[in-house]
């Protein structure tokens, strides 16, 4: 069934959007990730303008973030102080990201730059995840626990504006969580990904946070950064399509239920290996598009 999207101003088969939402919901249910890295490229692949795909994806990240953070909050696994400082950086990163997005759109290189950003991000995260999960599958000990013994690098400990974060038992410069938040905000507003892949290792290895608090805190931060990004895209570029968001979220709700059920069967390191391969698969697909001769040498861009 075709449905006309009021902001994207195009007709799309609604079952495809719903299935995409359900698939990403399933993935997030199994692996506990937001799934933005899959939704945005797949929406663009379906012909949704990249601005609308990125703008709308922000609201889906809010939904998956809220659903994820509730559980951590109930168990007290959210450090609101670190989260709030990260949020400050996140807002700033979002502003810079929205500006950067408009700039590359103006240059006519949006597809290239978004592809390169995706390839670098997914390639590095995918390799790291694969390495970590294979390592832990054989050693029965995760790299996280190995690395967690390391304290923050000396350069970071010398940064100014030090603050105490009692919940995480940290005494570190506010610039560190702020900087991590900045990167997250930038990713949400330019690529439509929450950046959980990047935030979690950064918070463990750079900030030195206890792994128990990391997932909840990063989700807390992603919710508000994504909400801010949605606000920016909706007001500056009018690129948030509520109709698209509703069907993506609806599919996501149902997919997530099946994902959680399926996660009983695929657990631990094996699940992370599958996820790493999935991430690398998307990365490889984008790299092929960038490096192999395209089927169409000419591209049409309207309204610049």
């Amino acid at each position: 069934m075709q449905i006309y999207l009021p902001i994207a101003e195009m007709s799309v088969p609604i079952e495809m959007i719903f299935l995409l939402g359900a698939f990403v919901g399933f993935i997030s249910g199994v692996f506990g990730v937001g799934g933005g890295f899959l939704t945005t490229p797949l929406l663009i692949f379906m012909g949704i303008p990249s601005a609308v795909a990125v703008g709308t994806q922000g609201s889906q990240l809010v939904a998956s973030g809220v659903s994820g953070v509730m559980g951590y909050w109930r168990r007290g696994h959210v450090d609101f102080m670190v989260g709030t400082i990260m949020l400050g950086g996140g807002f700033f990163g979002t502003l810079v990201g929205v500006g950067f997005f408009q700039f590359i759109k103006y240059l006519g290189q949006i597809d290239l730059i978004i592809s390169i950003l995706y390839i670098v991000l997914l390639g590095s995260i995918g390799c790291m995840m694969l390495f970590e999960s294979v390592f832990s599958a054989f050693k029965k000990k995760t790299m996280k626990s190995e690395f967690n013994r390391l304290k923050s690098p000396s350069l970071i400990s010398r940064l100014p504006y030090k603050m105490r974060f009692p919940r995480s038992k940290l005494y570190v410069s506010a610039l560190v969580p702020g900087g991590i938040g900045f990167v997250s905000g930038f990713l949400v507003s330019t690529m439509g990904v929450g950046g959980g892949f990047l935030l979690v290792p950064a918070m463990i290895y750079i900030l030195g946070m206890p792994p128990l608090l990391v997932a909840g805190t990063s989700l807390f931060q992603i919710i508000f950064t994504s909400a801010f990004s949605t606000m920016m895209h909706a007001t500056i570029s009018n690129s948030v399509d509520i109709m698209l968001a509703v069907f993506l979220i609806l599919g996501g709700v149902i997919g997530a239920q099946f994902g959680v059920l399926a996660s009983k069967k695929v657990t631990g390191a094996r699940a992370r290996i599958i996820l790493a391969l999935l991430v690398l698969g998307v990365c490889l697909q984008l790299a092929i598009q960038l490096f192999l001769s395209p089927s169409e040498i000419f591209v049409m861009v309207e309204g610049q």
Partner: peptide
């Protein structure tokens, strides 16, 4: 949009 996303997430 944001409220809807919050509500769906909570749901």
């Amino acid at each position: 949009c944001i409220f809807l996303a919050f509500f769906s997430g909570w749901l």
